[in-house]
Simulated scan of single mutants.
Amino acid sequence: MFTGIIEEIGTIRQKLPDSMVIGAKIVISDLSCGDSVAVNGTCLTATRVSNDSFSADVSPETLRLTNLQALTIGDKVNMERALKLEDRLGGHLVAGHIDGTIRLIEKKMAAESLILKFSTTDELSRYIIKKGSVCIDGVSLTVVDIVGHIFSVCIIPHTAYQTTLFLKETGYLANLEVDIIGKYVERLIQPVKQGLTHNFLTEHGFA
């Protein structure tokens, strides 16, 4: 698990079809083979750790659902080590399992803050609510507004410049993980929803 608080911006050193090498300083300070690192919000397992980088394998499913497939040598990525039980939960609970990509359609400044507007799918937008949490490229953010499948987030200067988000331009595809709690709630109430048939309502005097 992660919190969506970025610790470091890393650099892609090497990119292969099923693995990558990422330059880092902070996240490798206590990293061991087998440990998890969120890269642009995607949970990856370190397979090799050196004094200035680490390697990670990337599955076909991960490449299909994330923007990692588009990365090239020299690209910058957001990174966060896995949460420890005694750590502060500064953002929100993030699994590191990307639900899909979203497109940046508008970027503007409001005073000192950065406003980003994204377009998502109907399938994912149902999990996004005003003032709720989303994780975009590994960054825990609060939803300012949502209309249909378009939503916006407001990013304070500190967060913007401690992450790669301030570098992105319209058209960029970002990784999105919706709030995991919403998905669990939906799953739990599915049996109830499926049981609300017309016959059920009639039998109980509601139709």
Rank of each mutant, 00 (worst) to 15 (best):
V144M: 14
V178W: 03
M109E: 04
D145H: 15
V147E: 11
A160C: 07
T164V: 03
L116V: 12
H158I: 13
L201Y: 01
D145F: 11
L176D: 00
C135T: 11
A111F: 13
L196N: 01
T170N: 13
N199I: 13
C135E: 06
F118R: 00
I115R: 00
G132L: 09
H158Q: 15
I146T: 06
G171W: 05
F166D: 06
N199E: 08
E186G: 14
N199G: 08
Y127T: 12
E186I: 12
I150A: 06
A207C: 13
H158S: 10
K183Y: 09
G195E: 09
D179K: 08
L173C: 03
V178F: 06
N175P: 04
S152Q: 11
V185I: 11
T142A: 01
D179E: 13
F118L: 02
E169Q: 13
E177P: 05
F151I: 02
V143S: 14
V192C: 15
E123N: 15
S113G: 11
I155L: 06
K117V: 11
T159W: 03
I150V: 11
G171P: 01
F166L: 04
F206M: 04
T121M: 07
E177N: 11
Y184C: 13
T164H: 00
E169W: 10
K193C: 10
D122L: 04
D145T: 15
L196M: 00
T142K: 00
S133R: 14
S119H: 04
F200K: 04
K131E: 15
S152R: 08
A207V: 09
H158P: 12
E203W: 10
H198W: 06
D137I: 05
G148L: 02
I129Y: 01
C154M: 15
K168E: 01
I146G: 07
K117H: 14
P191W: 07
K130F: 08
S152D: 07
V192M: 15
K168V: 01
T121I: 06
T121Y: 04
L167Y: 03
A110C: 08
A110F: 04
L188P: 01
Q190I: 12
V143Y: 07
Q190H: 07
A111Y: 13
A174N: 02
D145C: 15
S152W: 02
N199D: 07
I180P: 02
K131R: 15
I181Q: 03
T142I: 05
E112M: 10
T120W: 09
L176Q: 01
R126K: 05
I180C: 07
I115A: 02
Q190C: 10
T197S: 03
V192R: 14
I136Y: 01
S125N: 03
K130S: 15
V147S: 12
T159K: 02
Y161D: 02
E123D: 15
K130V: 13
A160G: 05
T120G: 04
T170L: 06
E203S: 05
P191S: 07
F151N: 00
F118E: 00
E186S: 14
I136T: 01
